[in-house]
Design a protein around this nucleic acid. Structure first.
Lengths: 345, 345
DNA sequence: CTGTTAGCGCGTTCAA
DNA sequence: TTGAACGCGCTAACAG
């Protein structure tokens, strides 16, 4: 008998081993409101230990109508922006006794919808969408429908970054942060700007461009569309944008604003390859304040977002959300001036 | 009626809506071997669409005896080493039609055990342990027992980095890689070395130290214990180690080997703060070749590990594993010499 | 090919 | 307090 059973121990096994009923074993192992005699309780616990019993979370989810998990969608987990947010999410989830399942969208709207649909199958308590989306995304309606359906069944949805969809949101002040950066840069004496932005319509990027333009506008400086070079919203994209910028011979910019730190880093690499001195020949600023920035030279000016905290806030917000009231949590940004944008004569 | 049902649509609902039996609906929606008439199939699909039905993965997992998920344990997801491995894992999982749930151990052995126990409750197909462990870890037996229990019930376990436990392993050549680095550095003319290592007993770190020492030994250079400064296996740890090294006045090292890139980066920050020129006053090398290295100055010499590939390999290995045969996949490393360790006259 | 039925592992009534 | 029985959503026999 029992030649290493090929299946996991079940609650039934534990009950039998302890000589009690299934119900009693259940009550002893999981925090039921009901009490169970001390003797039975210890016997059940011992049996569970002996059989290496782990409650089947799937079965629990079925009968309870949901699992204690939070589903997190990011564009790419190797990107420090997302991995830091993820870190905060996991920390908060841990504290709340929840587990985290992740999905990677690679910034493909269609994939995002499919992921939501699949993850919804887990009946998680929370779905967090951390990746920015496109204004003109084809499947916008489908995504909203999917998320609404999830909410109707008791789930909580939290968006991070911008409030484009009618769900609870951890709002990042991309516009305000970029505007403040623009003002700070003009205060340093800069007058000619070029922006390396993400693809047309990628909201996080376009918000930052909008804010930056507004900030410059306050100082009477225009930012024509010609001063915006687009690329993927990644380090490679920044690198490519810089290459094209250099090839275009447009030159002339005193300072480059990368719509994200990773784009700024990519641009710096390209400039360095081209033999430009930083910040001597061109100053650079980014956005996010990812950890990597602490290690690059020159130190890069940026707009700080407390990324890990953003992740934690997302979970907290979801946990205290009442269905329907799409609350908003504002997260402040902070301009951080560093060596990459020295005062200009 | 049906004032937005407060529960997710069920297969039963779909069947009723389509006017077919539960079984038929099931067969139409999920890839059963059985065929179903075209007319019914389309009717079921339409009903599912209309009701925004998503199969309850938990219920499926219960009846199928397992879920299509891979559980990934890392020390800290914000660390580029782990986030890049995670990226590879998620990619491979996606291709295999599996979902990923993650847990963070924070390098606490006890937490690792608890996480395995909890995640085991999900009845995943695969558990991947990416975080290095300690040689003398108190709960080693408990961890093995937990993992064994998981394997007995049909699960697959894959370890990443070293083969300390009797499970399938994606083996990183920490020893050989560090040895080759040591030889390369001596070939460049270096003769006085100091190592910034992780905590005593942290295997990945100690393997690298061992390999480095062996490589130096081949050249007739000894690496006394006094030449090893320990700190956390993080950027902060590298920073602290450097501070202590400098305070100790031991000086004298021509080159510092950080047992991981993040430690090396932390050390560089400390040296820079102390006013040392890099690599003028001290040369530096790391291990891992994390993406960040592309952006720091001077470019850092390191031992490259194809991290994303390691993650993919882990999943592939698990997928083709036969229970019991704890196969090993070797991943080669490559020494990458950069500006941080210039030839020494 | 379709429908009926019996479980999967578990929480939770309902009597005892 | 305990235990027997029902049901959660679904798949896999089993008949038809």
């Amino acid at each position: 008998m029992s030649a290493t059973t090929p299946r996991a121990a079940t609650l039934q096994d534990v009950a039998r081993e302890a000589g009690v009923s299934l119900a009693t074993a259940s009550r002893a192992l999981n925090g039921s409101t009901r009490q169970v005699a001390e003797e039975y309780r210890t016997r059940v616990l011992a049996a569970a230990e002996k059989l290496e019993y782990t409650p089947n979370l799937s079965a629990q989810a079925v009968v309870r109508g949901g699992s204690m998990t939070v589903a997190l969608l990011v564009a790419e987990i190797a990107d420090p922006y997302f991995s830091t947010i993820a870190s905060g999410v996991m920390q908060a989830a841990e504290e709340a006794g929840m587990q985290v399942t992740m999905g990677v969208t690679e910034r493909m709207p269609q994939r995002e919808i499919e992921l939501v649909r699949v993850l919804r199958g887990q009946r998680p308590k929370i779905i967090i969408l951390a990746g920015s989306r496109f204004t003109n995304a084809a499947g916008r309606e489908a995504l909203v429908a999917e998320l609404r359906a999830f909410e109707r069944t008791g789930g909580r949805v939290v968006m991070i970054s911008q409030r484009e969809l009618p769900f609870a949101t951890v709002l990042l002040d991309n516009v305000g942060g970029a505007a403040e950066l623009a003002r700070a840069l003009t205060d340093l004496g800069y007058t000619r700007f070029v922006v390396f932005a993400g693809p047309e319509g990628l909201m996080t990027s376009s918000e930052r461009v909008t804010g930056f333009r507004a900030g410059l506008g306050e100082r009477g400086i225009a930012l024509p569309d010609g001063a915006i070079v687009r690329g993927e919203f990644t380090r490679e994209g920044g690198y490519d944008a810089a290459k094209r910028y250099l090839a275009g011979g447009s030159g002339g910019a005193e300072v480059i604003f990368g719509a994200s730190d990773v784009m700024a880093l990519g641009a710096m690499a390209a400039f360095r390859e081209a033999g430009l001195a930083l910040p001597g020949d061109v100053a650079i600023a980014g956005f996010d304040d990812i950890a990597t920035l602490r290690d690059v030279t020159p130190a890069v000016t940026t707009v700080r977002i407390p990324l890990a905290e953003v992740g934690r806030r997302a979970v907290e917000l979801a946990l205290r959300e009442e269905p329907g009231d799409a609350a908003v949590v504002h997260v402040a940004t902070e301009t951080v001036l560093r060596e990459s944008t020295p005062p200009r004569g």
